[in-house]
Amino acid sequence: DAEFRHDSGYEVHHQKLVFFAEDVGSNKGAIIGLMVGGVVIA
């Protein structure tokens, strides 16, 4: 149960990062950079 909640939280966090990247611009380099930055921060 705890693992499921953790996975759901991660999924929401990931979707927010992707949405933010798409909102800023559909530049693949920027999106990839944001994703990598999110992984480093996390």
Rank of each mutant, 00 (worst) to 15 (best):
V18M: 08
A30E: 03
D7I: 08
G29C: 15
E22T: 15
D7F: 11
H6A: 10
K28E: 06
M35T: 00
A2R: 12
Q15F: 06
E11M: 06
E3V: 05
D1Q: 13
G29M: 05
V12Y: 10
I32C: 02
L34H: 01
G33A: 01
M35A: 01
H6M: 10
A42P: 04
V39W: 04
D23K: 11
M35C: 02
F4H: 11
F19N: 07
Y10W: 09
A2M: 10
A42D: 03
V12C: 14
S26P: 01
I41D: 04
V24C: 06
A21C: 14
L17D: 05
V40W: 02
H13R: 10
V12S: 12
V18F: 15
V24W: 03
Y10S: 11
G33L: 01
F4A: 08
R5L: 07
F4E: 07
G9L: 09
V40H: 03
I31A: 04
S8Y: 10
I31W: 02
G25Q: 10
M35V: 08
V12G: 11
K16I: 03
V39N: 05
L34C: 11
H13C: 14
F4W: 06
G33H: 10
A2L: 05
Y10V: 07
V40E: 01
Y10D: 10
V12K: 12
V36P: 01
V24K: 13
G9H: 12
E11G: 13
A2V: 06
V18K: 09
E3M: 05
L17G: 13
G33R: 01
S8K: 12
F20D: 05
R5I: 06
D1I: 03
G37P: 01
V18E: 04
V18G: 05
S8G: 12
E22M: 05
D23N: 15
G9S: 04
A21S: 07
L17V: 15
V12R: 12
G38Q: 05
G33S: 02
F4P: 10
K28S: 10
H14Q: 07
K16R: 09
I41E: 00
L17Q: 03
L17W: 10
L34N: 00
R5N: 09
V39M: 02
G29E: 07
K28P: 03
E3L: 03
V36F: 14
Y10L: 06
I31C: 07
I32F: 05
G29W: 01
G37L: 01
G38V: 02
D23I: 00
A2I: 05
A30P: 04
G9A: 11
S26G: 08
V39A: 01
L17K: 14
G38S: 05
N27V: 13
V36L: 13
E11Y: 09
G37I: 02
H13V: 15
F4Y: 07
V36N: 05
D1N: 13
E3C: 13
R5D: 04
V39L: 05
K28L: 02
I32P: 01
Y10R: 10
G38R: 01
V39G: 01
V39F: 05
E22F: 03
A30L: 12
H6E: 06
Q15A: 12
F19R: 04
V24E: 10
M35D: 01
A42I: 09
V39Y: 03
V24G: 15
A21G: 12
F20T: 12
S26K: 04
V12N: 12
R5H: 06
G29A: 05
E11W: 03
H6K: 11
V39S: 00
V36D: 01
H13T: 10
Y10I: 11
N27F: 15
V18R: 11
G33Y: 03
A42K: 00
N27M: 07
D7H: 14
V18W: 09
D7N: 12
F19P: 06
G29Q: 08
G33M: 02
V24N: 10
G29Y: 02
G25F: 14
I41S: 00
S26M: 08
N27A: 03
E3G: 10
L34K: 02
A21E: 09
G9T: 10
I31L: 03
E3N: 13
E11C: 15
R5T: 10
H14S: 08
M35P: 01
N27Q: 03
G29R: 06
D1R: 13
V40R: 00
A30S: 00
H13E: 06
L17S: 10
A30T: 13
A30F: 07
L17P: 11
E22L: 03
H14P: 11
V39T: 08
V36H: 03
I32T: 00
I32G: 01
G38F: 02
G29F: 07
L17N: 12
F20P: 04
R5A: 06
V18H: 09
Y10M: 08
V36C: 13
F19H: 06
F20M: 09
E3T: 14
F20N: 10
E22P: 15
H14C: 10
R5E: 00
E22C: 14
E22S: 15
H14L: 09
R5Q: 06
A21M: 14
H6P: 13
K16W: 01
I41W: 05
K16P: 15
A30H: 04
R5M: 12
K28F: 01
K16T: 14
L34V: 15
V12I: 09
S8T: 07
K16S: 13
D23F: 01
I32K: 02
D23G: 14
A30K: 02
D7E: 09
G9F: 11
K16Y: 05
A21I: 14
L17T: 15
A42Y: 02
M35F: 00
G25W: 03
V24R: 12
I32A: 02
F20W: 02
A42M: 12
D1G: 12
D7V: 09
E3W: 12
S26T: 10
G33C: 07
V40A: 03
N27D: 00
G29T: 08
D7A: 12
L17E: 07
G9N: 11
L34W: 01
G37D: 00
M35H: 01
E22W: 00
V39R: 02
I31E: 00
G9V: 07
D1K: 12
I41H: 07
A30W: 02
A21Y: 11
N27P: 03
Q15L: 08
G38P: 05
H6F: 09
G9P: 14
K28V: 05
V12L: 14
H14W: 01
A42S: 09
H6W: 08
G37Q: 01
G37M: 01
K28I: 08
H6I: 06
K16V: 07
I41C: 00
S26L: 10
Q15R: 05
F19A: 05
G29I: 14
I41R: 02
N27I: 12
L17I: 14
K28R: 07
H14T: 07
H14I: 15
K16H: 11
E3P: 13
I31Y: 03
G29S: 02
S26R: 03
K16M: 05
D23Q: 08
G9K: 13
V40G: 02
V39C: 04
A42Q: 06
R5V: 11
M35E: 00
I41G: 02
D7Q: 14
I32R: 00
A2G: 12
I31H: 06
E3S: 12
V40Q: 02
H13A: 08
V24Q: 15
G9W: 12
F19E: 04
V39H: 04
E11D: 13
G25R: 11
V24I: 15
K28A: 11
V40K: 01
V18T: 13
V12H: 14
V39P: 00
A2Q: 12
D7W: 12
G38A: 02
F4I: 11
G38H: 02
G29V: 15
G38E: 00
A21W: 07
S8P: 06
F4R: 11
H14R: 10
R5K: 09
E22N: 15
H6D: 08
D1W: 06
A30I: 15
H6Y: 11
G38N: 09
Q15W: 00
S26F: 07
V18Q: 12
I31P: 01
H14N: 11
V40D: 03
A42E: 00
H6V: 05
I32N: 00
H13F: 14
R5W: 05
L17H: 14
S26W: 02
D7T: 15
H14E: 07
S26Q: 11
V40I: 05
F19S: 05
E11H: 15
A21H: 13
H13Q: 09
V24S: 12
A30D: 01
F19G: 06
G25V: 08
H6T: 09
G29H: 03
D1C: 07
